[in-house]
Amino acid sequence: MKTRFAVPVLAHVLALIVMAPLLWVVISALRPASDVFTFGWPKNWTLENLRYVLFEIPMPLFLMNSAIVSIVVTVVALFFHSMAAYALARLRFPGRAFLFSGIMSTLLVSLPVILVPLFLVAKQLNLLDSYAGLIVPSIFHAFGIFLLRQYYLNIPKELEEAADLDGCGYWRRYWSVILPLSRPILASLSVLFFLANWNAFLWPLTITRNPDLRVIQLGMSGLQGQYAAAWNLVLAAAVIAAIPTVVVFVLGQKRLVDAMKTSGLK
């Protein structure tokens, strides 16, 4: 009986501990500059911090750049990852296991390790200071291929065999049978890919020098450097930057959990 009540209480306490810093950020963004580090419920509220961030600095441009990069990378990555995963899950060809092992081995290599050679390749391809430079190197990720492959391995082969009887080739089977069944896992991966690219900092910092191509994370870092003491503006920018990620996560939360439960290893 004690455990029955102790577990929910503990869960609520842990949730409050996690939410407390986020709540402090939101409240501090609505404080005057003189009270930003004052603890307790603020006596004075102001929207000046949000107004300044939105209209006095190019925050809408930063948000638009991040949205373009995140959406394009997510859509293109899901399309190519799903094709690669389907080939690795269903097609039989020499070297398939070796190819899959090579793809998975890239998970052991972090971005800082390949940052310099990746930059040199982008330079040779004239991708510096362009949307293509921000988008193309971010498309491939072994985790997406792995998760989709495991999901496809759990799809009954009888569905594809029935499509074969109707004269469907590999492409028709993939487009008409596999993709419609992949909506839960694709929705969950779209959340992960969008959040990862929205929060990207190191690669955009390396590939771009044009202020008009700054993504939201670069814009916030520049704000903090330019106004080192104006933490109220930094926190206001952080709140604005977090809104799209919260919306995307809330919309895709159910699909994300369902896909994680149904894409077990096989």
Rank of each mutant, 00 (worst) to 15 (best):
P8C: 07
L10I: 14
A11Q: 11
L14V: 14
L16Y: 00
W24I: 14
V25W: 05
V25E: 09
V26D: 02
V36P: 03
W41D: 07
P42H: 05
P58K: 11
P60Q: 06
P60F: 08
N65C: 09
V69F: 05
S70R: 09
V73G: 04
F79H: 03
A84E: 02
A85K: 07
L88V: 04
F93I: 10
S105C: 10
S110Y: 01
L111H: 01
P112A: 06
V116T: 08
F119K: 02
S130F: 04
Y131E: 02
I155T: 12
I155L: 15
P156D: 11
K157M: 15
G167F: 09
Y174D: 07
I178C: 05
P180I: 01
S182R: 04
R183T: 13
P184D: 03
L186Y: 01
A187V: 08
L189W: 03
F193Q: 10
A196M: 12
A200Y: 02
F201L: 13
L202I: 14
T206E: 12
I207H: 06
R209N: 15
R214S: 14
I216M: 14
I216D: 05
M220Y: 08
L223I: 10
A229L: 14
N232V: 07
V247G: 09
L251E: 04
G252E: 10
V257E: 04
M260Y: 08
